[in-house]
Amino acid sequence: MSVSKFVVAAIAMSVSMTALGAGSHGSGHGHGAKSGEPAKFPEGGRTITVEMHDNYYEPEAFDVKKGEIVRFMVENKGSLVHEFNIGTPAMHEAHQDEMMMMVEHGVIQGGKLNHKMMEMDMGNGKTMKHDDPNSVLLEPGESKEIVWKFTDKGDIEFACNVPGHYQAGMYGDVNFN
């Protein structure tokens, strides 16, 4: 194995390891706080449409009840890649490091996702797929949905963790009432 190949593999491993960590955020770990869990959408449940623009959401806040299951229809109406991620501020901060790595390795390139790179088998069965249940990562024009159960009250935000976007203000509050 050449040195450069080894370096790529090492980076890939570190990405997939941390990605795994992010995946387990959904069920909560370490922080003693969690943002809820994936769920099956019940009949008559509530749907919230979220538009992602450059670089902000519409709406910028919404209300939920403890235990409520909400379906989010998320659409990227901007011209850059954006994420919709439900988590605590600490979870977002941790995820931002991973997203930075995805940018540095060319997975996120402005308005494009390098799917080939995301799908690539890094040799240990792991990939740089962004497939955590609490988030979607969308190219311009793409739409996806998340069904999420807000199991407990907490300090929960929805946020885009593409580098710089959260800091520029691309986040919103989930208010419990």
Partner: peptide
């Protein structure tokens, strides 16, 4: 978020 009056993709 801006350089020379024009918005840039945010960089921290």
């Amino acid at each position: 978020v801006q350089a020379d009056g024009n918005n840039v993709q945010p960089v921290s």
